[in-house]
Write a protein that binds this DNA or RNA. Structure first.
Lengths: 170, 170
DNA sequence: TATTGTTATACTCTATAACTATA
DNA sequence: TATAGTTATAGAGTATAACAATA
């Protein structure tokens, strides 16, 4: 990566950072969902397990806030992970309305595998540029995210469900 | 933007390019859709008008291929823009099955306004970093997009419809 | 009165199939 | 036989409202 001179690519859209970010972001999300699918997980599951690994015993409402989703959606996420025996709903010690969500041993194993998948995805996405450029790119993106006011670790929308029965035509 | 040293931000996800791209990409797409809404347009409309401005008279199938969407979806897009008097379906000179899509005068005006909206969006998104970093970021993103095999100017998914009746709660 | 978890409902978007008229 | 445009249908995702239990 040294050619920073403005090249006249065909499409006018392809020269805008806003479009490129949106395009690459959609690709990244979709690709990650595909890689996660063999583990029986969707990005939301991964996000929830990651959040839990940084602090178990949180209420569903707190987790929903941390992930930027509605508590109604969190119910489904927790249901699915609980059905698979990856998390447990326990009594909240301080609030009898709330549940305290905890990880099981199985979840720690699966999270490890999922993180390796995420590492592979990251590596494949950045395969085209060198080490220095990767570091600089990440710094730039972090800077943009902070300046735009995007909460750290919160991902809007984009489920891109590759697990469903019908949309398995990719 | 000079601090490229790895900083230990709170979230482990926030240090991955794949996550940051996806997060910023979703934000960019959503924000652009919001800015386009007052003009009565969705990103798909803008994309179609942009493609047409680079070559009128194309068939719907060709336009669909160029935009990376299915021809069934293109029908709806063309319907909506035709109802608003922005494009016309004419007889295709070479193929009586196909339509030749043309822009109207009104479309040129509106496209100008939409492009100004896109410029504002681009500027706001990049407001946090300097001129040199912007150029370098765009070059990096273009390089990633090319290396990943993403077709230039094609945007998957992400409609994020802010025009619909119900989802006007943002 | 406000909040947590839950369920139900409606709506949007997308994918697929099928049909017609042409090629 | 294959393709362009069209229409209809089914599925997934999401937003909203409403409810019971508890704060």
């Amino acid at each position: 990566m040294a050619d920073v001179t403005a090249r006249a690519t065909g499409h006018p859209l392809a020269g805008r950072a806003s479009f490129l970010l949106s395009q690459l972001g959609a690709y990244s999300a979709h690709e990650f969902a595909k890689r996660l699918a063999p583990l029986g997980m969707r990005p939301g599951h991964f996000g929830l397990l990651m959040h839990l690994s940084r602090g178990e015993g949180q209420s569903q409402q707190r987790l929903a806030d941390a992930m930027g989703i509605h508590r109604n959606v969190m119910v489904g996420l927790v249901d699915e992970l609980e059905d698979r025996g990856l998390i447990e709903r326990r009594r909240h010690p301080a609030d009898r309305r709330a549940h305290a969500i905890h990880l099981t041993g199985t979840a720690h194993d699966l999270l490890g595998r999922a993180q390796r998948v995420a590492d592979e995805h990251e590596a494949e996405l950045l395969a085209g540029i060198g080490e220095d450029d990767r570091t600089y790119l990440i710094a730039l993106l972090q800077h943009l995210a902070e300046h735009t006011g995007l909460p750290s670790g919160v991902h809007p929308g984009l489920n891109d469900n590759p697990l469903s029965t019908t949309s398995r035509r990719c």
